[in-house]
Design a protein around this nucleic acid. Structure first.
Lengths: 144, 144
DNA sequence: ATTAAATAGGACAAAATTGTCCTATTAATA
DNA sequence: TATTAATAGGACAATTTTGTCCTATTTAAT
């Protein structure tokens, strides 16, 4: 469904949010350890998240990654997906046809439109706050 | 959502079904032309579909691919997806976690379970017949 | 029997994704 | 000011996916 990069990106963002809620800024190594991801690859993904204003980075000693308390509520899952994988999963044709649309649909167009719309709506409604707090309470996990 | 191979596989199967409904057996070149896919790559995908009893192949001159009239009703979309991409899309964790399940879920588990279940159910309910006849009537298309 | 047209399948090639390594830059602190 | 710890980013490497090419095998028709 999502690329590996996107999976890591979502996990990393949730972890950073969780730590930010506790007022902790976290660095790359800690993030990679927490979500069990390759360090250098995770660094690339974090760069992309920073450029897309999803997480904030602080350079230099005592630097790391964080998310503003206010921002944690407003970041939704779909923003991370779009930033890393683009919106093909929300908008693209299930059969890979470029010219597929409502008026000239591929054979599965309407059936898949429903699924994709549900996916998009769900990710648009799901805030990082919600995901991070589930973690805090120990109801969910991010590793393995 | 699906791999390129899977997209081609679904398009090929629908085209073969449509032609089989008209009692035409079709060969590789014709299939690739009809669905606008790379010929040799399509050949590999068709091999997989044959091994999974989704389409039938006839070797030698006047050979080609076809699907039994009866079989056209019973083949469902999910079988093609599973044959080519496996069932990761139906069963796998959205964040790529191996040990994610109902009792120890990842933060997005329940939200995605709903989407994945809908996808699986929809593909299980969608027969190739249904897709092929939409095509016949000219309501849908398979190219570009 | 020979030929021609088709699928089957192995080996290879190209492209995309995933992952690594090194250096530059930045900032805190001794 | 020098050192240390951190992100930024470019170049490279490995792996997976996508795609090609060639040969063997099968079958119909001459």
């Amino acid at each position: 469904m999502f690329s590996k990069a996107c999976e890591y990106g979502i996990r990393a963002t949730i972890y950073i949010a969780m730590q930010s809620l506790e007022k902790n800024r976290v660095n790359l190594k800690e993030i990679a350890a927490a979500i069990d991801s390759p360090v250098a690859f995770t660094a690339k993904i974090l760069q992309k998240l920073v450029k897309n204003d999803i997480v904030e980075s602080v350079k230099g000693a005592h630097g790391g990654f964080q998310i503003d308390r206010v921002h944690i509520d407003s970041i939704k899952l779909n923003q991370i997906v779009s930033a890393i994988d683009g919106d093909k999963i929300f908008k693209g044709c299930a059969l890979g046809l470029h010219h597929c649309n409502e008026s000239l649909p591929c054979p599965v167009h309407f059936k898949f439109k429903e699924i994709r719309d549900n996916l998009e709506q769900m990710t648009k409604e799901t805030s990082i706050y919600e995901l991070a707090t589930g973690l805090e309470v120990g109801l969910t996990f991010l590793k393995r």
